[in-house]
Design a protein around this nucleic acid. Structure first.
Lengths: 340, 340
DNA sequence: GCCACTTGATAGGACATACCTATCAACATT
DNA sequence: AATGTTGATAGGTATGTCCTATCAAGTGGC
């Protein structure tokens, strides 16, 4: 049995005429006759009573034609459904974001996203890197915004931007005296960290050579569960810390008693990438998302353009101009304007 | 799009594995891969996310697979429906019967029919010959029990039985004196007739040469609308009439004051046939019906066997023995036992 | 680290099926 | 009788589906 045959069937039933039905189906009359005959044999039921000058649907035929209509109706619904999924931007985009990025990045893009790509339904989830990668592998999320490179060849990345680290300490603190911060200052700073599992904690430890120092038992075991808590601990005078630039944006206004400045040392930034399964079929939505995200970043971060697979997506308005020339793979960052 | 492809689709979706799905569909894995790929291109939607070691249905795929299940479900219902129509005996058999036969024949066969062929749903309608032929042509009925041969090649007939005519007149009537009835007796009888349109009226007029007599204005215009009325008119002394044998069966018991005898003259019977469109596809139900009807007739009629297309239908119990040797095309009937 | 085994994709050829044109047989109309 | 209509049939072609053989990439055991 075949959907085509069923179409032929209802065409004949509607017209009680093989020739007209054939015309309607854009096939020749013998073709249609043959297919109807085949269908009748297959079903074991005579569907039409043919006489020389008329065709009449049999009683059994009436019932079967009615059912055939139901089949075709559902098949039609399937095609409409498929058509509604034609737009790769459409549908949910389940996006994992690390906790040290999510609360500072999402507010920047939610509104522009809804404005420019209303069909993208962003479903964010905030978890730590390891969890996100696990969930990515389990197809529970479609992509993740991570600050660490992913090695597995199963995954691919679109580098989005480099986010400098800022040194944060109480106003009344020895570091306030320093005109410029050096690596030596970092190496001996009284650093406060996030709990284990946060990639930010790892990165800060690496930048400040904390692994070596910890071996000497120098560092307190005091760990914060969020950047918010961390800042409060700094404000309370427990020590200093490094903060990613986007987090600085939001806290600078109302956190008093804190001194913050961007680190100008080499490799004192983290690279934020959009990571996804190599096999994820809706590249376009990721590319659109990445492009929109980059277009709505503040100047405190360094946007990375030039990812080969990023292209203007069909139907996308291209009114946003490139804000920056290529600054790819910069490990010795230029100075930049900054706010706050 | 094809129902086969949809089967492949749900097979893969159910197993998340091309090889197993192919096995389930009794095709090779490359075949299945190719068809799924074709389907994806046709629908313009990626249905499965394939990686080296796993297959996962995409979000769009989930929706489309669910719809595909609905299509297949309806298609399956169609096949079941067709299967339920496999038995050609099944379903309604819309049978037209002429009024001078219906009330006397149907009681004889309804119970045996229900007992032997419970799947046949007989839908009788009682109308005059012309109307029945019209309705037959309009496919409003499937067959008709008529007493007149039908000439059009569009229709075919199964001759069922010859029904003798009986002469009916009041006990106190000149004809009561006669030992035997001759053609001359008929030619001058004071005959009462059914209204125009009844084939019986035509036949009686022909047998009794009433057309010639009417030209002379001899006959009263008094016409009965039914055999029941006709008998009452005879009982009331308005005249005599001819009655078909099956009608005699039922009235003989309670109609008093009437004398009835079977005519022994040539051609004083009518031939009852089952008439149907040549193109009617369910021959079997007609043959089964004809055979059952013949098996349940009283001895007052002469059953006509030997119709070439009458055969024992599959599933039919053959416990009824032939009650009579062939008496086909007898125009000079043998004497027969008779009741009443 | 090597080798057997698994996965789905690809290539090329065999076969089945659906399609076409041309034609027929039966009937209706002119 | 001639013409036009109906659906069915015949024979050839093109498309589509299927197979086997093979590949590429990855997994797991030893």
């Amino acid at each position: 049995m075949n959907l085509r045959d069923l179409k032929y069937l209802v065409a004949v039933a509607d017209r009680q005429h093989f020739g007209l039905a054939a015309e309607h189906c854009f096939v020749s009359q013998p073709t249609l006759s043959g297919q109807i005959k085949k269908l009748e044999q297959e079903l074991g039921v005579c569907l039409f009573e043919r006489s020389r000058h008329s065709v009449v649907t049999t009683a059994a035929g009436e019932a079967i034609v009615a059912q055939a209509r139901r089949v075709l109706e559902q098949a039609d619904a399937l095609q409409q459904l498929a058509r509604s999924h034609h737009d790769p931007l459409l549908g949910p985009l389940r996006m994992g974001v690390i906790p040290t990025l999510s609360p500072y990045l999402l507010p920047l893009i939610l509104q522009p996203l809804r404005k420019q790509y209303p069909q993208i339904k962003l479903v964010p989830s905030e978890e730590m890197t390891n969890t996100l990668i696990l969930r990515l592998g389990r197809h529970e999320i479609d992509a993740a915004l991570l600050a660490t490179p992913v090695e597995e060849r199963e995954y691919e990345s679109i580098p989005l931007f480099d986010e400098p680290f800022w040194l944060v300490h109480p106003r009344r603190h020895p570091l306030s005296e320093k005109q410029t911060i050096t690596q030596a200052d970092l190496d001996c700073a009284d650093l406060l960290l996030l709990t284990e599992g946060h990639c930010l904690a790892e990165q800060v430890m690496k930048i400040c050579h904390i692994h070596e120092r910890r071996a000497q038992g120098e560092l307190a075991d005091l760990r914060a569960t969020s950047l918010e808590t961390l800042l409060q601990m700094v404000a309370a005078g427990f020590g200093s810390t490094l903060l990613p630039a986007l987090a600085v944006e939001t806290v600078s206004a109302h956190k008093r008693g804190l001194a913050m400045r961007e680190l100008q040392l080499p490799d004192t930034f983290r690279r934020i990438s959009l990571v996804y399964r190599h096999s994820f079929p809706r590249h376009q939505v990721l590319e659109a998302f990445a492009q929109l995200l980059q277009a709505n970043l503040p100047a405190t971060v360094r946007v990375l353009h030039g990812h080969s697979s990023v292209q203007v997506v069909a139907g996308m308005t291209s009114k946003e101009k490139p804000r920056q020339t290529r600054t790819r793979h910069i490990s010795n960052p230029d100075r930049q304007d900054r706010r706050g």
